[in-house]
Amino acid sequence: MQQIINFILRNKTFLLFLLLLSASLFLTIQSHSYHKSKFINSANFLTGGIYESVNNIGNYFNLKTENAILLEENNRLKSILFNFKKDTLKEEYIDSTTFNANYKLTAAQVYKNSYSATNNYLTINKGKRDSIKQDYGVITSKGIIGIIDNTSKKYSRVMSVLNTNIRVNAQLKKTNHFGTLKWNGKSPKYVQLVDLQKQAPVTVGDTIITGGLSTIFPKGIPIGVVSAFKIDDTENYFEIDIKLFNDMTNVGHVYIIENLDAEEISTLNNLDE
């Protein structure tokens, strides 16, 4: 016993070093798997609060571009609305926008954004208090941003599409061939679409949208255009580079999508198990 205590006292520095190193390695390994990095994330009151106060100063500089984006989006939505009205004048519930809604949208502001690491996250200013939960989708008017990964009371962390852990169901706009959206960690302008059947008629410049197979995103949210493609090693699937519509290095305001039917769909899918 005496010797054990002596050993610990003699090597206390080394033992402390080992302890702390293994603690940090544990956290590192956890952060590399989806949905496990619970403890260390920027959606807490300290880091969220500091990012918030800095953002309060910084967002004045982006007002001009944000206004331009909003105007562009309003323009698009107005033109859809005006052209839509003519065919549906007989629609009874035209004034009730919440009637039969499947999706609920919440606007949020980005406090922190990163794009140079291999696993990137964003921090936004809506959290549990605004009934935001894990696995809600996050988009802008131009296209997808990511998936909510962790929430605290006032803030939540979004796993960006620029994260090597992300998997999103995506498809071609012109046909229903679908694949999985991934990121290879290289350029913040491009993401990759894999597992798309070889029969699909892919050409450079095709638009890629989200597929309706997952409950996170509704079908038809734009992602990007095909910039290059090749057949993968198994010779059965395409590997496609997609140029994102969004400039991921400059994200100001986002929308959070809640699928109100998500629970029902997932219980239905779980019946088989």
């Binding site: 590192t28 952060s31 590399h32 500091i50 690491a117």
Partner: peptide, 28 residues
């Protein structure tokens, strides 16, 4: 000193959402 370095790395990790990579590098 080692403990403070760990704390330093962990705080940076908190802000940057990087798990424990800064903490590990700092402790070493």
């Amino acid at each position: 000193f080692i403990f403070l370095s760990f704390l330093l790395g962990l705080t940076v990790d908190l802000f940057l959402d990087s798990g424990g990579v800064h903490a590990a590098a700092c402790v070493t």
